[in-house]
Amino acid sequence: MKFKFLAFLSILASVLVSCQDVVQFQVEELDPKIVVEGQISNNPQDNYIKLTYNQDFYDSGAVKPATGLLVTVFDDLGNSEILVETPVQSGVYPIKTLGVIGRSYSLSIKTTTSEYRSEPQELMAKAPLNYLFQHEYTVNNRPIPFIPPGTFALFGYTDNAATKDYSLFRLAINDTLLKGLNFFTVIEDRFINGATVDSIAFGKRFKVGEKVTIEHRSLSKGAFDFLNQVGAQLGSAGSPFEVPPGPIRGNLRNVADKEDYCLGWFGVCEVRRDTLLIR
């Protein structure tokens, strides 16, 4: 019986399953653009701006930092801070000003020929986690088929009903953020406004002794849209049922040329971290 079923699946797969091949495909290359990474937040360790340049698509060499630029942070009270590039790492500009919830911030970058500036974004509060604990999934209590059993970290939070909220969750093990889309999740409260969201988990099984950290931060609507598009494009498999990729424009635009913009996003957020030791 099992053989018949497997034979059927094999035939079906050979007929219907699509295939992927790596191909040589020429693309036109873009003139260098500034890439903005970083944010102003309530947390000194997260307050920095890192500026680099994009690379040719097939270039796997080191990323070139953008140095010697005039970088300024503004708030809605008229205060500003000119950022000084750190000698420790080229292209990194620490921010001394601490972000305050409810206040709006913008960023300006001046090169020798152009000025790029972001629209003000309000620093929104991030709801705290209600819990973070470890949970064992066995063969019999898996939430969905196919997931192998193991130790997961579950967490939950209650959305603030009074505000439109957008959140970013990231996962770190032993204080090192994990790379990749699977550990980089954005959530909006369009369908869960005011609700308690339970049993959120990254698809990662943990070992005893590992220190699990959930980093969660508030996002502006623009940042959410930006990261959502980034996630969709990086997760793309070219399926007919996906939104075709398109340009994801950052929030810093050339003040004199609407077609010129920076890549990346200047964030304004509250950052929280919760930890759990797997036993």
Binding site: L30, N54, K179, G180, G246, I248, G264
Partner: peptide, 20 residues
């Protein structure tokens, strides 16, 4: 829509797409 470059953002390498 084809990419015409790639950039690094946090630990992600993101293709930069051009005109539609």
């Amino acid at each position: 829509t084809l990419p015409n470059g790639v950039y690094s953002y946090y630990d992600l390498r993101i293709p930069a797409y051009g005109y539609r």
